[in-house]
Computed example of a mutant assay.
Amino acid sequence: MRQIVLDTETTGLNARTGDRVIEIGCVELLNRQLTGNNLHFYINPERDSEEGALAVHGLTTEFLSDKPKFAEIADEFRDYVRGAEIIIHNASFDVGFLDAEFKLLGLPPFKEHVDNVIDSLQMAKEQHPGRRNSLDALCDRYGISNAHRTLHGGLLDAALLAEVYLAMTRGQNSLTMDLAAGGGDEDGAVKLELAPLADVIVVAATEAELGLHETVLNTLDKEVRGTCVWRKEPEPEAPPA
């Protein structure tokens, strides 16, 4: 399975009011393994970043002025993500901006170029309800170092998210993954071979252990001034009517 962990940086928070994508970072996973076949663009948005956004990513208008425009990288970007499963933290934000960029070029929406989109933020909320589920919080939770993350960055955040996603989904490899090797029946169900049960080992208490147990029960009898619950036999269940 080919998966792409993707992150963008933008000039602001609202694509509908003209904010643009200024950075795209993509990290490739193939069968849950990092391949190193990553993709990264800085993009000239032809406008300034809002003050709040600039404080987050630090990508100035001057720095971006000689970078390619989105139209110049669109084909390479689409070829890279085509047919892959895309993993994005807070996917609606990034997909909304990519859709806006594609619309300016007369291209179909982002999801029509890929297999599907997984929102890792929604996954985290389901796994950790009521807790902080930002990328930084998840890095702390899963023991992933993000000490070098002083500012947000598309490729850096995608690389951190890739590690977080692998940690979040560890142990969830489905049995259906074996179907490619012919492990399923005609309906796609997986058949598991029955193995014989191991011998049950019974370890009996020694005389000394039984004596100590009796001493404890006697002490409990004295404390309750009667018979402690551990000496009472459970009532037999009534037969069904």
Rank of each mutant, 00 (worst) to 15 (best):
S174N: 09
A198D: 11
E237C: 03
G83Y: 02
L197D: 14
H152S: 01
L6H: 04
G211V: 09
E28H: 07
P236D: 10
E235C: 07
L212T: 14
D48A: 11
T150G: 12
L13Q: 10
N133Y: 13
L59G: 03
L175P: 10
L217W: 13
G226I: 12
H152T: 06
A180K: 07
D221M: 09
L155S: 02
N14F: 15
A167R: 15
E46S: 14
L161N: 07
F97W: 09
N116D: 09
G188P: 04
G18A: 09
H148F: 10
D157R: 00
N44W: 06
A195I: 14
L192E: 05
H113T: 10
F110H: 01
T169S: 12
L6Y: 09
E207H: 03
L166S: 08
P240H: 10
L30I: 14
V5K: 06
C228F: 05
T219A: 14
T11C: 05
N146G: 06
A180D: 08
I73P: 06
K67G: 08
C26Y: 08
G226Y: 04
L175K: 11
P234F: 02
M177G: 02
A100L: 11
A167K: 15
V202N: 07
K232L: 15
T150D: 12
L107S: 02
R20W: 06
V81G: 00
V203Q: 13
V203W: 11
D185W: 05
